[in-house]
Amino acid sequence: MCGFDGNTSAISAIKDGTLGMDIAQLGYDMGYKAVEAAVKCLQGETVDAFIDSGVQVVDSTNCDEYIDDMKAKGLWE
């Protein structure tokens, strides 16, 4: 089974084996790229009509790495 969002309950479910994988939306990167684009607009630069903030497939092989990255960004308790 696969979840979508990369939230704590999904990652916990991967760790305990009740969920096979999750597609994390990378909210930090969404916000960062949005602010970056806003600054460019304010400076008179043009920005792409579509800005891909990416996703990450999280499964049992990389969920600890994902948690460490979220903690480093202040997004995980």
Rank of each mutant, 00 (worst) to 15 (best):
T46H: 09
V47N: 04
Q43N: 14
T8R: 11
K40Q: 02
G20W: 05
Q43G: 15
V55Q: 14
A37K: 02
A34M: 10
A38H: 15
T46F: 08
D68K: 12
M70Q: 08
A49I: 11
D59E: 03
C2G: 10
D48S: 08
G44N: 04
C63T: 09
E65H: 06
M70H: 01
T8W: 04
M21I: 12
S12I: 03
D48C: 01
D59R: 07
C63R: 00
D69T: 13
G74P: 01
W76E: 11
L26A: 13
S9E: 06
G3W: 02
C41P: 02
M70T: 00
K40T: 01
I51K: 09
A49C: 11
V57M: 10
Y28C: 11
C2K: 11
M1G: 03
E36M: 10
G3Y: 07
K33S: 03
M21A: 15
Y32W: 11
V47G: 01
F4R: 02
D5S: 08
A10E: 12
G31Y: 12
K33F: 09
I23E: 00
V58M: 02
M21T: 15
G31Q: 13
S53Q: 04
D5H: 00
A34P: 06
D5R: 05
A38D: 13
I23G: 04
G54L: 09
T46N: 10
A24H: 00
E77C: 07
Y28R: 13
G6T: 11
D52M: 03
L75F: 05
G20E: 06
D69W: 11
D48Y: 04
A72R: 15
V57C: 08
M30L: 15
K33Q: 12
G54I: 08
M1Q: 05
I51D: 08
G44F: 02
V39S: 06
Y28P: 11
D64N: 09
G54N: 10
L42W: 01
D59S: 08
K73R: 14
D48K: 07
Y66I: 10
I67M: 00
D22I: 00
G31V: 15
M1F: 05
D64F: 04
T46I: 03
I11R: 05
N62M: 12
Q25K: 06
G20C: 07
W76Y: 13
I11H: 07
V35P: 04
I23M: 03
D69K: 14
G44C: 01
V58W: 03
D69F: 09
A24L: 05
Y66N: 09
E77F: 01
W76Q: 10
M70Y: 05
I67S: 01
K15V: 08
G74A: 06
A24E: 02
N7V: 08
G74I: 04
S53P: 08
A72V: 12
E65M: 10
